[in-house]
Simulated scan of single mutants.
Amino acid sequence: MADVRRIQVSGGSDGSAEGGNSAYLLPDRGILVDPGPPTESAWDRLVDGIADAGLAVEDIEHVLVTHWHADHTGNAARLREAADATLAMHERDAPLVGDYAAERERRLERDAATLERWGVPSEQVASLVDFDSPSPVPDEVPVRELADGDTVAGVDVLHTPGHTAGHAAFVVDDVGFVGDAILRTCTPNVGGGDTRQSDPLTAYRRTLSRLESRVELARPGHGESFPLAPRVAELRAHHRERSGRALAALATVEPATPWALAEELFGEMAGYHVKFGAGEAFAHLEQLRNAGLVTRVEDDQLAYETVDSDVGQDDVATAWKPSTDRASRTR
């Protein structure tokens, strides 16, 4: 089994449910996965962890990042420069780091337009855009774009969308560095973390199956490692139950926009929870639509209704049979 050193680069003192960030060092391969947020304390912990493994920063040859969110990419450019290393990400997420300044502006415009289409009130949209502060990272940085099936120093690249469009896991032997695709103590957000995705929950279901077929031990972007298969079962059960709640809520929510459904499911939301809540509701509505249980009644500002009054929880259970996901597994 590959030599892996976990470095806790942040302590989770911000109260986030998932806890502090985990970076991973593969000393024999010169690889560092997910170097953490753009803070001095995270950088110091990262450098100390590398030194504790008997390496210098200059020994790092490859900086691999699972997805574009700042708590995973924030120190990536700094480490790339300090180590004269290659920074690499999946091709779908790479531009959001490689061309950060321009892509951030595009992302804010896209997020605002998407939230409005989801039915989020304009004042909530404006507040969320204001809440999204820029990260202290370079406007541009060279990034090697990876594709599903590529390898880096013997580590396989597995495209695992859902949390973001270009989320990737890095797999060696039966160990997977899974970023935020699977977390031990909380459920990764699907739908709100990246508004580029048109059917994020269907993509995420395939991600769970792909990881299940390749990985026994998960090393997540937050917290300690854990056996993957039992956690996949829990996540499937969680989303199956939430799909059932979403379907039931359509009988009482009028109009059934993703935002209205999110308020019904999650209650009052503020800050980034506006995007995460509305995105999660959208993800479940599109999954139910993909299963033929609901239909869109409006497309400009999205609204949904059940296909007929006979649709119920048995139909949700059928739609969530694991054979649907396993049919799309690839190794």
Rank of each mutant, 00 (worst) to 15 (best):
A94H: 01
V307W: 08
H239P: 01
S135H: 09
D310K: 11
L87M: 03
P227T: 10
N75C: 10
D14V: 06
S133L: 13
A256Y: 14
F266W: 10
T295M: 10
E123L: 15
E40V: 12
F131C: 07
D310I: 06
T324K: 14
L265M: 09
A251C: 10
A42W: 00
R45D: 05
M1T: 04
R110V: 07
V190L: 10
L235V: 07
D150G: 00
D111H: 06
N75R: 10
R104K: 14
R104M: 08
A126G: 09
G162V: 02
L250H: 02
A2V: 00
Q313E: 14
A317N: 12
D93V: 06
V178D: 00
G49L: 04
E109D: 15
V9C: 07
Y24L: 02
M89W: 05
T114L: 04
L146V: 08
A169I: 04
P136D: 08
D48V: 13
E61T: 02
G36T: 05
V125Q: 02
R104H: 12
V190Q: 04
Q197W: 05
D111M: 11
W320H: 12
E286P: 01
W320T: 05
A88D: 05
D48E: 12
F131A: 11
V63E: 03
Q301T: 15
D194L: 04
T114C: 05
E91L: 13
S225W: 12
S243P: 00
L128I: 11
G223M: 08
A248K: 03
D48H: 10
V143I: 08
D84W: 01
T195L: 07
G176T: 01
V63H: 00
Q124D: 11
H72M: 15
I31N: 01
G15F: 13
A248I: 04
E298M: 06
T39F: 13
L217M: 15
R80N: 03
R206W: 09
E268C: 07
A251P: 04
A237V: 06
A94G: 07
L302P: 00
E298C: 05
R219W: 11
T195I: 08
A153C: 01
A229D: 14
A237C: 06
L247Q: 01
E280V: 02
Q124T: 08
D300Q: 12
F266Q: 08
G193M: 03
Y100K: 02
H69M: 10
L235G: 04
L235K: 03
Q287T: 11
V175Y: 05
W320Q: 10
G312P: 00
V120S: 02
E109N: 14
R296C: 11
V137I: 15
T39V: 13
N21G: 15
L25G: 01
T295C: 07
L46Y: 03
A249E: 07
D44Y: 13
T318V: 11
E40C: 11
